[in-house]
Design a protein around this nucleic acid. Structure first.
Lengths: 220, 220
DNA sequence: TTCGCACTACCGGTAAACCGGTAGTCCAAA
DNA sequence: TTTGGACTACCGGTTTACCGGTAGTGCGAA
C-alpha cells in the first residue's frame, strides 16, 4: 500500500526536486502539490492524503497556521515540517501545531525519506539540528519556554510582508485591514521579539524561515 | 614544501572548522587567522603567507577591499574567496579584485581542498554554482555587466551596518563620519541596487553574503 | 458567565527614513 | 593637467517608522 503525499512549498522548483527525491521510494506517491496554506486545506478537503510535507515559509497562510487548521479537520493526517533554518520559535510552534516531524532543508534528502518512514510508523522524527534546538528550548527552563514569545498567525503574516519591504499602508491594503491595525501588529511583533527596527525584523524573518532568503526584486 | 595559509573569517568557530579540514592535507599549514580585513593586511605584512582563504563578509574592511589592497602590496599572494551565497555582484567584484578562486560555504570541504590545489598550480578555480553565476553575468551582455551596480568599499560597509539595524546616526558614530554622509551612502546604495527601504537592503545584504544570516540580538 | 486573547481601529507625538539638491577635498587615471 | 570617481558634508522637504495609550468585537477556555 503506497503512501499518498501532498507537497506544500511556494517554490515550484523545490516541489519538483522533492518529487524526484521521493520517487526513489516506490512506496511513496506524490498525489498533489500546493503553493500556499490555503491550497493545502483545499486539496486535503478534496482528496485523500496521508502525509503532508509542509514548508513553513509560504505567502498568505503559512505552514504553522495551515498545520493547525489541517489537523483540526483531518486528525489522522501526518505533517512533516520543512524550513531553511532550525529557528527555535518556529520549530516549537510547528510541533505545537501537531507536526510529527521537522527537518531543515540543509539536510540531505535521505533525511526526509527517513523522516517519512519514521512518521508513518507513528513515531516522531526530528533532524539532529532541530532536535538540538528543541532540547535547548526545553533546557532553558520550562517556565521561560512557556513564556516564550509566541507569534500569532496574523503577526507572522505581517512579519512576512514587512520583511518584503512593504509599508504599513501597503500591508493593510494586501490584508484588507487598516494601516493602523498593521502598526499594532508591527509593535506587538517588536515587543515580543525584542527587536526595534525593520532591519532586525527582516533578519529574524529570513533566519526563522518565515521569509525566503532571495534577492529583493528592485522596483522594476 | 608546505603551503602557508592565512584564514580570514569573522567567526572563530568557522576558522577552527576550516583549520581542522585543512589539517587533512599535510602539505597545508595554517600559519595565522584573521577576523577582519585590517587584520589580514597586518598579518600579511608581518609574516610570509602563500595563500589566503578570505570570507567576503567581515566587519570593518570586508573581503573584497582587503583582497584589493592585499594584492596591491603582495602580488604573488593567492586569494580564494568564501561566502555563503554566490551573489553575482560580489563574485564578480572579488574576482575583479584579483582572487584566484571562489567557492560557496554550501560546498563540501573537499571543494575547498580542490580549490587550494588548483590555485597553487597557477590556475583559477570556481565551484559549480559560482561558475554558473559568472557565466550568467557574462552572458547577460558585457555592456550590462560593465554598467552593473558596483558598490564601493564604504557603501558595502554602510550596507553591512544598515542590515544590522543601526540608524544613520549610529553608523556615523561607528565609522567616525557625519550622519549626513551616511545618508548619502544609503541613498547611493538604494539608487545603485534599485531598492527603496531598509527591509530590501537587509535582504540584499544577507543574500549577497555581506551580512551573516544570524538571528538579530534583541536589545539584550 | 467571566476572563483572556486575538484582532480590529484610532489618537497623539518624536525619531528616522527617504528623496532631491549643492559642494568641497582627495586621488588616480586619462 | 584635466577629468572623474569616491568620500565627505550640508540644505530643504515629505513619508514612514516607532512608541505610548485607549477601545470595541468575537471567540474559546476556565
Amino acid at each position: 500500500m503506497s503512501l499518498r503525499i501532498l507537497l506544500a512549498d511556494d517554490h515550484q522548483m523545490f516541489r519538483h526536486a522533492l518529487r524526484a527525491l521521493l520517487a526513489r521510494d516506490p512506496e511513496l506517491e506524490v498525489v498533489a502539490e500546493a503553493a500556499s496554506g490555503e491550497e493545502v486545506l483545499a486539496i486535503a478537503d478534496a482528496q485523500p492524503v496521508d502525509l503532508v510535507c509542509m514548508d513553513i515559509a509560504m505567502p498568505g497562510m503559512d505552514g504553522i497556521e495551515a498545520t493547525r487548521r489541517l489537523l483540526a479537520r483531518h486528525p489522522a493526517l501526518r505533517v512533516i515540517g520543512l524550513s531553511a533554518f532550525a529557528d527555535r520559535q518556529f520549530v516549537t510552534d510547528l510541533l505545537a501545531a501537531g507536526a510529527r516531524g521537522y527537518i531543515t532543508k540543509g539536510e540531505a534528502g535521505d533525511e526526509l525519506l527517513r523522516a517519512i518512514r519514521t512518521v508513518c510508523e507513528g513515531r516522531s522524527y526530528l533532524c539532529p539540528e532541530v532536535a538540538a534546538t528543541v532540547a535547548d528550548a526545553l533546557r532553558d527552563s520550562p517556565g521561560v519556554y512557556a513564556a516564550a514569545p509566541r507569534l500569532t498567525a496574523r503577526e507572522r503574516q505581517v512579519l512576512q510582508l514587512i520583511a518584503e519591504g512593504l509599508t504599513s499602508v501597503q500591508i493593510g491594503d494586501r490584508l484588507h485591514i487598516a494601516a493602523s491595525t498593521v502598526e499594532v501588529h508591527r509593535r506587538n511583533l517588536m515587543r515580543k521579539l525584542d527587536l526595534h527596527n525593520v532591519a532586525e525584523l527582516t533578519r529574524y524573518a529570513i533566519h526563522s524561515g518565515i521569509s525566503p532568503n532571495v534577492t529583493p526584486g528592485g522596483a522594476g
